[in-house]
């Protein structure tokens, strides 16, 4: 009889709400990411630097029009998407480092639910992604070359920010797939290739036809098209939305699959 009765101590104690999700945890996660010099250079310095290097301030881009603005504005949006991609992937992939260090195991000795952990990772990705998008846009604004209507600045920045959630899922998936502390060294070139194929660095019509057809099915394509839609006045592209939704679902499913294998083995 007594063995079957849970301890009285159990009744006195509560399980935290929301699976242990907390703003303190989120704040410390963001602080950790901001403290990491490599991540900072990667996600906050490189995208605006690329905007300047790729000729964002050049006379030609300033005068060439692109939809409701000029080519410089097109580049601002592209590199905001790129920054958001990098920030989201870095934050997601940080689980690889935490697994390598045994921190994931340590967290399993707390009430933290794995879903709450992943949500925290995605939110961390979005906070740093917002910073990255903001920096590219601020550099675009203060250097004065980019021109587009005010609402286009706002809409394209928001879409670049939110659409890159596909890369938070991508980062999580890779983070659970690759047991390495150096996962971002692998992901840097992969992201550059995806950005190229997604038409982030150069417009897709500059690639050959076969590549263009393949490119439409790569994960950076959807968010790129959607982010530029307001500037280029192309309306809502259903295929681009489908691209983001399907890739996000695939990466999230991959992350959950690897996570399950991970915890079964430990």
């Amino acid at each position: 009889m007594t063995a079957a009765v849970p301890s009285a101590a159990l009744a006195d104690r509560r399980v935290p709400p929301l699976g242990g999700f907390s703003l303190t945890f989120l704040r410390l996660e963001v602080r950790r990411l901001l403290r990491n010099r490599r991540t900072m250079v990667f996600t906050l310095v490189m995208p605006p630097a690329f905007y300047l290097l790729f000729g964002g301030l050049s006379e030609a881009y300033r005068t060439d029009s692109a939809g409701r603005g000029n080519v410089s504005a097109y580049l601002v949006i592209s590199f905001a998407v790129y920054g958001s991609m990098l920030a989201n992937t870095s934050a997601g992939a940080s689980v690889a480092v935490e697994r390598a260090l045994g921190w994931s195991r340590q967290l399993r000795l707390t009430p933290l639910n794995p879903v709450a952990y992943m949500v925290t990772k995605v939110l961390t990705a979005m906070v740093v992604g917002a910073l990255s998008v903001a920096i590219v846009n601020v550099v675009g604004l203060v250097t004065g070359a980019a021109h587009m209507p005010g609402w286009v600045w706002v809409v394209s920045a928001l879409v670049a920010w939110l659409g890159a959630i596909v890369f938070a899922a991508f980062g999580l998936f890779i983070g659970y797939l690759v047991p390495s502390e150096n996962v971002m060294q692998l992901l840097g070139p992969v992201l550059a290739l995806l950005a190229l194929m997604g038409g982030i660095f150069v417009p897709l019509d500059q690639l050959n036809h076969t590549l263009q057809d393949v490119a439409k099915f790569t994960p950076a394509y959807g968010v790129g098209v959607l982010a530029r839609a307001a500037l280029l006045d192309t309306g809502v592209d259903v295929a681009a939305i489908a691209n983001v939704v399907v890739w996000t679902a695939l990466f999230a499913a991959g992350a959950v699959w690897r996570f399950r294998r991970d915890t079964a083995r430990v």
Binding site: V15, L101, G102, T110, P111
Partner: peptide, 19 residues
């Protein structure tokens, strides 16, 4: 674990070096 009834000190690892 979820109720905080039991905690553990593991052998090694399990700490974030940057905190």
């Amino acid at each position: 674990v979820a109720h905080g009834l039991v905690t553990a000190v593991m052998q090694s690892g399990g700490l974030l070096k940057d905190l």
